[in-house]
Structure formats: C-alpha cells, structure tokens
C-alpha cells in the first residue's frame, strides 16, 4: 500500500497543518517511504504473537489520590499567545 496525495491532504487537515502544493508532493513521497518501510513487517507471520499495548513489560503503575502543588496562574499562562489576568484567550469558537 502506498500513500496517496489525498491521504496526506486529509492527515494534514486533521493535524491542522497547512501544506503548499510542493510540500504535499514531498510529504506524499516521504511518508509513503516511511509507511512502506513499516510494511515490511507484513512479511512476518504474527499468528502466534500476542498483540502488544506497550513496549515495556510493565503494568499497574498508580499514584495515590493525594493533592500536590499546582502551577501559579502566571506560570501556567506564561506561554499563551493571548491571555488576560485569569484565562487563555482564543479566537471565538463558532458553531457550538
């Protein structure tokens, strides 16, 4: 299976990436090669291999339900492109 230009357009839309024509060509080619490389795994028989949910053989890592420190508001908002004294500000969300 090779990736089509339409596939890449769809993925770029979902990822909110605006790609120009030339970039779409490049990405289609490069992503196609990545997918192709992974596809080599298809040559192996995995009939007797259990699906894996995680690369580590670890499970049940929990933390106790106890309060810890939160960030001061100024620090939390520090990287926001737009903010006021209390909140992040974003362009109005339409259609809700």
């Amino acid at each position: 299976m090779s990736l089509t230009r339409a596939d890449v357009e769809k993925v770029s839309l979902l990822g909110r990436l605006r790609l120009g024509d030339a970039e779409l060509d490049t990405m289609t080619e490069q992503m196609g090669r990545i997918v192709g490389y992974i596809e080599q795994l298809g040559e192996l028989s995995t009939d007797n291999v259990q699906p894996m949910a995680h690369a580590q053989e670890m499970h049940n890592v929990f933390a106790d339900d106890a309060l810890g420190a939160s960030l001061p508001r100024d620090a939390a908002l520090a990287n926001a492109p737009k903010k006021d004294a209390e909140c992040y500000r974003v362009p109005a969300v339409l259609g809700e």
Binding site: V61, F62, A63, D65, A66, S70, L71, R73, A76, C87
Partner: peptide, 30 residues
C-alpha cells in the same frame, strides 16, 4: 495531583501534566 475541586479561580488548578507541557508524564490515579 492537581485538585478537582469545582469553582476555583480560573487556571489555578493546573500543572505541566494537565496542560500538556512537553516532557511531562501522566500517572494513573489509583
């Protein structure tokens, strides 16, 4: 481990994990 209390002043109960800072790691609440 940020508080879940309702009605606090906006953006005073957040930390790098819940606001999605790169490199932060979630740990499941038992």
């Amino acid at each position: 481990r940020c508080s879940t209390k309702f009605g606090g002043p906006p953006n005073t109960q957040t930390c790098p994990v819940c606001i999605g800072m790169p490199g932060s790691l979630p740990v499941m609440n038992r």
